[in-house]
Design a protein around this nucleic acid. Structure first.
Lengths: 222, 222
DNA sequence: AGCCTATTCAATTAATGAATAGAATAATTG
DNA sequence: CAATTATTCTATTCATTAATTGAATAGGCT
């Protein structure tokens, strides 16, 4: 069909556009950034700390994500705060994680192996914690980074980012149980805190569920 | 926390696994293959023809998709028939296309530009065609490749793959209207057929909607 | 001015992609 | 049953692209 505009050219260009999004998802580091951002807005520096990358490198990855409009930013003083571009992106990430878990058996295996190291940590379910919280027989610690806490948290929880736990240990009451939560079963912030408080003699539990993506679940990819 | 297994190592390995899926999506050619497969199972050769790639190249892409379990295959005689790996993959692709369309303004623009070339092709809606089909005042042609037709089609439609249209032109009745459909607004198979039949003197329409991914819609990515 | 954060640049290293040609498998034919 | 053909997969090549780092720059804030 020589009179028609080239269908092949059109197709190629179209799929090249689609692949702009795809390329963003092809790097483990960018996936980690997206995962972190799905837990709340973050500055470049903050992302660099949590992903253990250099600021320069994070910045470059963010440019790539920005080009595909998977993230957006606004400036707050000298900080550039990045956010997921759109609720659509958040939905998409959910279905990506779901797909990964369902297709890649390696992932489930890795996660199981990892969790075996923490068999000795006592856990409470969300319901149990809520009951105890109402009854006033427990203190609930949110040990995620401050930004995540601000973006959304359990009513009644106290924000004690894991970096700052040492400073707070003295002021925690010892005559009442303590529970800690973070993002999910595979986020070990709360596990670390539980072990540390156990050594200090507290009665302390880990909350099974995590707060992630604006909801309580066991499904946080990390 | 030196006694704990390295959280960083675990995270890195986990995101590397996730990125296995991501890498599949980073190539325009692989996205095209996935798109083609979402329209029905296909042999390597068939995929090569439709994507206008060499068989060897398609095969290599399929290996990559297979490694991430986005596709699976079964052998039929000497042919290896590839399929999407799982209904989950199909769902995921839908949300990927949706994300792409919503984030990348370029795509909408390209599609609009492309469609302008076909302003002169008369279209009918799905409802109109169904009415006319019941009334017996129209013949409906499915001009997609045979495999797609077999995988699912409009009841009452006749399969005339675009490659074979010339052989069928003689036997089409000229005293009744003809409509053709393919995958969607951006699949130009039906447009090509309409133009060809128009030149032959038929009264012929293009069905606005396309049959794609087991449903009628205007949303086929290509 | 001085400090802090983020981006850009330059340069190195690593990896990835497309394509070719050749290998393996299975059916078909003489 | 050997030889041929058809079909799909693998391995290697080469060019391209991507990731990372450190240094330099830009620009806001106090």
């Amino acid at each position: 069909m020589e009179s028609l505009p080239s269908a092949r050219k059109f197709k190629d260009e179209l799929y090249q556009q689609y692949a702009r999004i795809g390329k963003c998802l092809s790097s483990d580091k960018r996936l980690e950034i997206l995962s972190l951002l799905s837990q709340g807005p973050k500055s470049v520096e903050n992302l660099a700390q949590q992903s253990e990358m250099s600021v320069a490198n994070v910045s470059r990855h963010l440019q790539i994500l920005l080009d595909a409009r998977l993230v957006k930013f606004n400036k707050q003083g000298t900080y550039v705060i990045y956010t997921l571009g759109d609720p659509e992106v958040s939905n998409f990430l959910l279905s990506l994680w779901r797909l990964c878990e369902s297709q890649l058996a390696d992932i489930s295996r890795m996660k199981e192996d990892f969790l075996q190291h923490f068999d000795d940590v006592q856990t409470l379910s969300l319901d149990e914690v809520m009951d105890k919280l109402e009854a006033g027989t427990i203190i609930l610690l949110d040990v995620r980074p401050t930004g995540d806490f601000v973006a959304g948290h359990m009513p009644g929880a106290i924000s004690i980012p894991i970096d700052e736990i040492d400073e707070y240990i003295q002021s925690l009451p010892r005559d009442i149980d303590v529970a800690a939560y973070c993002r999910g079963p595979f986020c070990i912030y709360s596990t670390e805190v539980v072990k540390k408080l156990q050594n200090e003699g507290f009665t302390v539990y880990r909350l099974e569920e995590g707060y992630w993506n604006g909801m309580w679940s066991l499904k946080c990819p990390l």
